[in-house]
Computed example of a mutant assay.
Amino acid sequence: MTRATRTAICSVAVTGLALGLSSCSEAVDQVDKAVNETYVVTYEVTGKNVDSIGFHDGGGKAMDPKVETVTNPKLPWTKTVTLRGIMPAAVMPVAADIEGAEVECRITYKGKVLEEQSAGGLATAGGCIAESPIAG
């Protein structure tokens, strides 16, 4: 291999590396921006004999959100919260009733339903978890 060929190959490799690092830097900038951006969602829970409702309230870290809990909520229950970045919106009702528990949950963002679930039975736990609209 001639010196000119080696120089050309090295030049192409260095250019590719520089472009790759530039793209990586742009991705990091986008993640940083998304983590600091906020969005507002409304949680709604209806049903019968709901014992408690856990929900992400915007506290904590994006991948380890703080869960707030309401016990013996009055139904229908709604709560509007501000979340950050890639933090998922989540509402988790828990119900138990020997005659049959019923729960329905919904998460809305700007009037659009992000997630909706319903369940029933002797004991019901679960809920709705929606991806951050900022991440998608």
Rank of each mutant, 00 (worst) to 15 (best):
Met1Glu: 11
Thr2Gly: 15
Arg3Gly: 14
Arg3His: 06
Ala4Cys: 02
Arg6Cys: 08
Thr7Arg: 15
Thr7His: 11
Ile9Ala: 15
Val14Tyr: 07
Val14Ser: 11
Val14His: 00
Gly16Met: 15
Ala18Ser: 10
Gly20Ser: 11
Gly20Ala: 14
Gly20Trp: 06
Gly20Tyr: 09
Leu21Glu: 01
Leu21Met: 11
Ser23His: 13
Cys24His: 12
Ser25Gln: 11
Asp29Trp: 01
Gln30Tyr: 02
Asp32Tyr: 09
Asp32Cys: 07
Lys33Gly: 05
Lys33Glu: 15
Ala34His: 03
Asn36Tyr: 04
Val40His: 06
Val40Ser: 15
Val41Thr: 05
Thr42Gly: 07
Tyr43Lys: 02
Val45Phe: 08
Thr46Ser: 15
Val50Ala: 09
Val50Tyr: 09
Asp51Arg: 12
Ile53Met: 01
Gly54Glu: 12
Gly54Gln: 12
Asp57Cys: 07
Met63Glu: 11
Lys66Pro: 00
Lys66Asn: 14
Val67Cys: 03
Val67Gln: 14
Thr69Ile: 06
Thr71Met: 04
Asn72Lys: 13
Asn72Asp: 10
Pro73Asn: 08
Lys74Arg: 09
Leu75Ser: 04
Trp77Asn: 04
Thr78Ala: 02
Leu83Ser: 08
Leu83Tyr: 13
Arg84Asp: 04
Arg84Gln: 09
Arg84Val: 03
Gly85Pro: 03
Ile86Phe: 10
Met87Asn: 05
Met87Arg: 01
Ala89Leu: 03
Ala90Glu: 13
Ala90Trp: 03
Val91Trp: 06
Pro93Thr: 09
Pro93Leu: 01
Val94Cys: 00
Ala95Phe: 05
Ala96Pro: 00
Asp97Cys: 05
Ile98Trp: 08
Glu99Gln: 12
Arg106Asp: 02
Ile107Glu: 08
Ile107Met: 06
Thr108Lys: 00
Thr108Val: 13
Thr108Glu: 07
Tyr109Val: 06
Lys110Trp: 00
Gly111Lys: 04
Gly111Tyr: 08
Gly111Gln: 07
Glu115Tyr: 04
Glu115Trp: 00
Glu115Asp: 14
Glu115Met: 10
Ser118Leu: 00
Ala119Asn: 13
Gly120Ile: 06
Leu122Thr: 15
Thr124Gly: 11
Thr124Trp: 10
Thr124Leu: 05
Ala125Phe: 12
Gly127Lys: 02
Ala130Arg: 01
Glu131Tyr: 10
Glu131Val: 12
Pro133Met: 05
Ile134Cys: 06
Ala135Pro: 07
Gly136Leu: 10
Gly136Met: 05
